[in-house]
Amino acid sequence: MAVVFDRPHALCDCNLHYCPGCTHGIIHRLVAEVIDELGVEGKTVGVAPVGCSVFAYNYFNCDMIEAPHGRAPAVATGVKRACPDDVVFTYQGDGDLAAIGTAETVHAATRGENIVVIFVNNTTYGMTGGQMAPTTLPNQVTQTTPYGRDVNTAGFPIRVCEMLCTLDGVALAQRVAVDTVPHIREAKKAIKKAFQNQIDGKGFSIVEILSTCPTNWGLSPVEALDWLRENMMPYYPLGVYKDSEKGVK
């Protein structure tokens, strides 16, 4: 019998710990497929900081580093500067990338650090049990916004791609989703482009992926996908915000 669908080599043969219906798993697979297709597993180093994806070091078959919360872009900078021929990517949540690690993110971007950032936006701090994140939507209920996010006291969500696309060092800033098959295809294309950018020496590429957290949203996996489409997509429109080949959107 012919094998028509297999695990990418860059993904280890083990059980992922993600909750049922969590889209972290799809994103892992896409990254691994891209690493396989570009044939770069042997020279890829992944950096996963604290967050639900902290165990990514057990899931990707390439060399892996676990970073402190928010510091992955700085750690990745160290690796890339030490080994410029390596392919270096980070895999970060929204709390990690846009709260505690904002400085590291913005400065890696503005330096045009030649790395790939996979940014998983699920509007919450998944690992610690669903607190408000910098991307939590206005009026969204979380463990620490029990009456809904009040923008007067808790401030507004950060639109990361829109913010970073103003920086000259950014080669690619694109927001994608993994809620439908066409979107998953689109997401993979974006991730592949980001990795190819690095191989071509183009600079900082970030792919923001709208992702679900059924557990902390208190929804079934299917309801979570609907919630993402109804609430996240209007606030975080999908699209290419910057492509150095084409300019800013």
Binding site: A67, A74, V75, T77, V79, C83, D86, A103
Partner: peptide, 21 residues
């Protein structure tokens, strides 16, 4: 490589990355 980081926090994490490599 000489790199002026955005903070001491970033600088030591760059050291972590280079040392890990």
């Amino acid at each position: 490589v000489y790199l002026q980081a955005e903070s001491e926090v970033a600088a030591i994490n760059m050291v972590l990355g280079a040392a890990a490599a």
